[in-house]
């Protein structure tokens, strides 16, 4: 589910705090943990205290993410992004998620952001990527 990109909307505050994103913030899809997760990773932005733990269950042979969950604390952008990317990741391969760019992430959110807020948006995806690297190295 890709949200539509707002034109000329760098840090467009109305776009950032629109109802869809606030809904993800207050009622996050995929909030929770996974016991016996195949991938588990914690990451934080020490500058502001946004932090996230991600959990992933894989269908191992085809390296497909069957389940992704997260828990965390942080601003609207970081938490809504974590919820959105968790939803998006399910059914995708870990290679596909590893290839996902900053632009892809902002496209999912339907936002353009200045560098300081991009970090918030990327927190969960970055944690997932680091978790994937971790998982690959252990195999």
């Amino acid at each position: 589910m890709i949200l539509k990109m707002e034109p000329d909307a760098i840090n467009n505050i109305d776009a950032m705090y629109r109802e869809e994103l606030l809904e993800y913030y207050h009622n996050p899809a995929n909030k929770g943990t996974i016991a016996n997760a195949d991938i588990q990773f914690s990451d934080k932005n020490p500058l502001c205290g946004d932090s996230v733990d991600i959990y992933v269950k894989l269908e191992v042979k085809d390296r497909i993410i069957t389940q992704m969950r997260f828990v965390g604390t942080g601003c609207v952008i970081s938490m809504a992004s974590a919820a959105i990317v968790s939803e998006y990741a399910e059914g995708k391969s870990i290679d596909e998620m590893q290839r996902m760019t900053r632009e892809d992430m902002l496209g999912l959110l339907g936002l353009q952001l200045t560098p300081s807020r991009v970090k918030c948006a990327m927190l969960a995806l970055t944690a997932l990527k680091k978790g994937i690297v971790d998982y690959e190295s252990k195999k």
Binding site: Y17, C48, G74, C75, I77
Partner: peptide, 25 residues
Amino acid sequence: VHPHDLATICNKHQVCIRAGHHCCQ
């Protein structure tokens, strides 16, 4: 309201404040 979100909405009102650990972790 997370400080980041507060500072962003302050920006909407042209209010310049700082949000973070202020170099005092």
